[in-house]
Write a protein that binds this DNA or RNA. Structure first.
Length: 268
DNA sequence: TTCCAGGCGTATC
DNA sequence: GATACGCATGGA
C-alpha cells in the first residue's frame, strides 16, 4: 500500500478503486457525494467515525485523517489489503465476468458494521435507494448517531413512525430486540458455516434469503455469499443457466458486484 | 394517475 | 415447495 502524509491528510495511491463504483452502488447508505474542487468527494461514516474522502485524479485524499486512524480503521473499511487486480485477473477467465470487470473495475467490497448493515438491508426491501438513505438518515439524526441494538430495542413500530419506514418498522424492532437480548449473536455469525449463518439471520422477521445474503456479504465479509435479486436473476438466466463458473468459487459475492453493475448498465 | 423500488410474510394449493 | 398477493412510502 502506497501512501504519504500531507498536512492533516493521507494521500493514497491505489489502483482498482473508484469512489462512485464502491460507495454509491447500493452496498452502503450513509455516504453523500459533495461538490468540491476535487474530481470526486464523499462524506460518510464507519460507525461513528466520520470521513471525507476525495479523488483528485491521482490519489485518494483522506481528509483530516491521521496515520493511526487510516491504518486501523479505513484500510480495513475500504478493504485496501485485498488485491482486486488479482481477483479480476482470476474472474476474467470467464468471458462475461471479464467484460463486467472491465466495465466497473473500481468496485471494492466495503467491510461494514454488521448491525448497521442488517438494519440497512431490512429497510432496503421493496424500496429504492434514495428512500433507503432518507430513512437511515432520519434514524441517525434522531439518535445523534447510528443507534445500537440496545437503544432501538425499546422502540415500537409506532414510536419509529418518524422514520416513515412503512411496514419495515416492525422488522427493525424485531431485529433490535433479538440482537439486544442476545438471542441473535451478530458477533458470532460471521464465523459460522454459511448455511448456519443464513439460518440464524433469517430468524429475524423481515429477513429472507436476499437480505440475509446481503448482510453476510456487506456486513460480515463472507465473500461466498451471493445475493440474488431481479437483476442477478437476469444475469443467471442469460449467461449462466448451468450456474456460476468455477473461477468464482469462494468469491461469488465479489463477482456478483461486478455483474450487478454490468447488467444494470447494459439494460439502461 | 398509476407504477415501481437490490423482498418478505402469509394464505392457499 | 411452488405460486399469488398485500404491504407503507414517495419519486418518476
Amino acid at each position: 500500500m502506497e501512501y504519504i502524509r500531507k498536512q492533516n491528510n493521507i494521500c493514497l495511491y491505489q489502483p482498482d478503486f473508484d469512489l462512485d463504483e464502491t460507495i454509491d452502488c447500493g452496498q452502503a447508505f450513509r455516504w453523500e457525494k459533495v461538490p468540491t474542487e476535487y474530481k470526486c468527494t464523499y462524506t460518510g461514516f464507519f460507525l461513528d467515525r466520520p470521513l471525507t474522502i476525495s479523488y483528485d485524479g491521482e490519489c485518494f485524499i483522506f481528509h483530516d485523517t491521521g496515520e493511526e486512524d487510516f491504518l486501523s480503521v479505513w484500510t480495513d473499511y475500504f478493504d485496501l489489503d485485498t488485491d482486486y487486480g488479482e481477483i479480476k485477473k482470476r474472474l476474467s477467465a470467464d468471458e462475461t465476468l471479464k467484460k463486467a470487470c472491465e466495465f466497473a473495475g473500481g468496485i471494492r467490497l466495503l467491510r461494514q458494521d454488521s448491525w448497521e448493515c442488517l438494519c440497512s438491508f431490512i429497510i432496503s426491501q421493496n424500496n429504492n435507494i434514495p428512500r433507503i438513505k432518507g430513512i437511515i438518515s432520519r434514524l441517525c439524526e434522531h439518535y445523534g448517531h447510528f443507534p445500537t441494538a440496545v437503544e432501538m430495542a425499546g422502540e415500537t413500530p409506532e414510536s419509529l413512525g418518524f422514520l416513515r419506514a412503512g411496514f419495515r418498522a416492525k422488522y427493525l424492532v424485531d431485529a433490535a430486540q433479538k440482537t439486544a437480548e442476545g438471542v441473535l449473536e451478530l458477533k458470532k455469525i460471521p464465523y459460522m458455516p454459511i448455511d448456519e449463518a443464513r439460518k440464524s439471520l433469517m430468524t429475524i422477521k423481515g429477513v429472507g434469503p436476499k437480505v440475509a445474503e446481503c448482510v453476510l456479504l456487506f456486513g460480515m465479509y463472507r465473500t461466498e455469499a451471493f445475493p440474488v435479486d431481479v437483476w442477478i436473476k437476469r444475469v443467471m438466466e442469460n449467461y449462466y443457466p448451468q450456474g456460476l463458473p468455477k473461477v468464482t468459487k469462494g468469491i461469488e459475492g465479489i463477482a456478483q458486484q461486478y455483474l450487478f453493475h454490468y447488467i444494470r448498465n447494459l439494460e439502461k
